[in-house]
Write a protein that binds this DNA or RNA. Structure first.
Lengths: 144, 144
DNA sequence: TGATAATAGTTCTATTTAGTATTATACTAA
DNA sequence: TTAGTATAATACTAAATAGAACTATTATCA
């Protein structure tokens, strides 16, 4: 079947990204960007993770993360701690400073959600989320 | 309602982008990239468009398009033609060379669709597409 | 054990994306 | 008609993203 879903999702990504960055800045947050927020998102949840795990959870490539984490370390949002046992691994720890931004970020995420899914019923949102998860599984099994 | 749809869509974007680029390269196409393909997509349809219109159709910022079109012009995929009447406007024309890639691109798009939406019924795809369009309208009315 | 493979991260390079400021042109209204 | 505003595109800067090649470490197994 012919569909434009892929194209539509790109567009939502561009627009949504611009809007999110703007709301962040309008809220006076200059400590981190939207992209950095997506990495913090998994660290707010887990506190400390290896880079490989962050890659799995965010779906970002590892070379992307090296760069992002460099920046975030410079801004004291995260800390790299080598694993004493497996010396190949680096644990990325979230700092107290970054923990302090969680609430504000959640508020902005919620605003973004309200704005994006205006007019959606709960059932529709669940339906959408379910389908996105299925697509994710499809892509993951292809990439693997 | 709490949802992860935004986060999920970012992830699909990252994974899907990597996969698409890889399929492009594995298909022997090095004349353009996935991002450039999204711009060609609207030009294959319309032949010639002003930069502002390409921005509207792709949802890309105009400063993004200046750079992308520079590259695509260098690769002879498009041509910039000033409007003789309104001298502020530039018409971006697709070249014969770029037209020749349409079929291959469509084939790859179709493969990407099959892979992404494996297990989806036609009704589900239409449902998804409808919801994405609604989100797009919501974001557009916010950005305006 | 020692060779080889696998894993974890980084570096380097190139592309993509967008905000802000700027230039040039067109439109509008006093 | 000209002053002010809106529109169209570019220039400049900075960040985000990923592939390929690399280093270092750990695991495997003949």
């Amino acid at each position: 079947m012919k569909t434009d879903c892929g194209y539509l999702m790109s567009q939502l990504q561009y627009m949504g990204g611009r809007i999110f960055e703007k709301i962040l800045r309008d809220s006076g947050i200059d400590a981190f960007t939207g992209a950095q927020g997506r990495i913090l998102y998994v660290l707010w949840e887990h506190g400390s993770l290896t880079i490989t795990k962050i890659g799995k959870m965010t779906s970002l490539a590892k070379s992307t993360l090296t760069v992002m984490l460099d920046m975030m370390e410079k801004k004291k949002l995260v800390r790299r701690v080598p694993d004493p046992v497996n010396r190949r691994q680096i644990h990325v720890q979230i700092t107290e400073k970054a923990k302090g931004y969680k609430k504000e970020y959640d508020d902005i995420s919620n605003r973004m959600t309200e704005l994006s899914y205006a007019g959606f019923s709960d059932a529709e949102m669940e339906c959408l989320e379910g389908m996105l998860k299925r697509i994710k599984r499809n892509l993951e099994s292809y990439e693997a």
